[in-house]
C-alpha cells in the first residue's frame, strides 16, 4: 500500500492524469487490483466507480494478475489474413489456456491485441513486449520452449 501511494505521489492530481496513473500502476504491478483502484480514487478525490468505469473502458487495463510471460497475439488485419487465428489455436493447444487466461503455474498468459505495428512481418506475437514475426508453428513452439527454459534471447 505505501508502495502504491509512493508511486502515485509523483503524479499530479488533475483528473486528466487518471489514465497515466493507471498505466503507472499497471506497469509496476502487472494489473489493476482493487486496492489500486481505491488508492487511485483517493488520489484524484473521485469515486471508485469512476475509476472502475475508466478501467473497464480501456482494453489495456487488466484486472487479473498476468503470467510471468505475457504473450500478445496480434490479430490486426495483416496478421489475421496471415493466420492469426491459427497462431492463437496453436498457443492455446500448447499452453492449455484460452485468450485472456493465465496458466496454473503463472508462467504464461495469453491475450489478443490489435496490431503491434510490425504488419510487414505478419503473423506476429509479442512476449513481454519483444516482438517475434513471420511465425509458423515450428517457430512458435520453439519460442515457448525457450521461455520455459527460463527467459529467451
Amino acid at each position: 500500500m505505501s508502495h502504491l501511494s509512493e508511486l502515485l505521489r509523483k503524479i499530479d492530481t488533475d483528473r486528466s492524469n487518471l489514465i497515466k496513473a493507471l498505466q503507472a500502476v499497471q506497469t509496476d504491478e502487472g494489473y489493476i487490483s482493487n486496492a489500486a483502484i481505491e488508492a487511485i480514487a483517493h488520489h484524484f478525490t473521485i469515486a471508485t466507480v469512476e475509476v472502475e468505469g475508466v478501467v473497464s473502458f480501456y482494453a489495456q487495463f487488466k484486472r487479473v494478475k498476468p503470467g510471468k510471460y505475457k504473450i500478445s497475439v496480434c490479430d490486426g488485419t495483416a496478421c489475421h489474413i496471415k493466420g492469426a487465428s491459427l497462431v492463437t489455436g496453436w498457443l492455446s493447444e500448447d499452453l492449455g489456456i484460452k485468450d485472456g487466461q493465465t496458466d496454473k503455474e503463472g508462467l504464461f498468459s495469453l491475450e489478443t491485441v490489435a496490431c503491434l505495428g510490425c504488419c510487414s512481418l505478419a503473423p506476429v506475437i509479442s512476449v513481454n513486449g519483444k516482438v517475434f514475426g513471420n511465425l509458423d508453428r515450428k517457430g512458435l513452439l520453439k519460442i515457448l520452449k525457450d521461455y520455459r527454459k527460463g527467459g529467451a534471447a
Binding site: D14, S16, L18, I19, L22, Q23, G53, V54, A59, A114
Partner: peptide
C-alpha cells in the same frame, strides 16, 4: 490505453481529460 474509438476527435479529448 487500447481503445480504437479514441482515434475519434471528441473521444480522444475525453480520454485526455481522464475519462471514458
Amino acid at each position: 490505453a487500447g481503445a480504437f474509438v479514441c482515434g475519434e476527435e471528441t473521444a480522444m479529448i475525453h480520454s485526455l481529460e481522464g475519462k471514458r
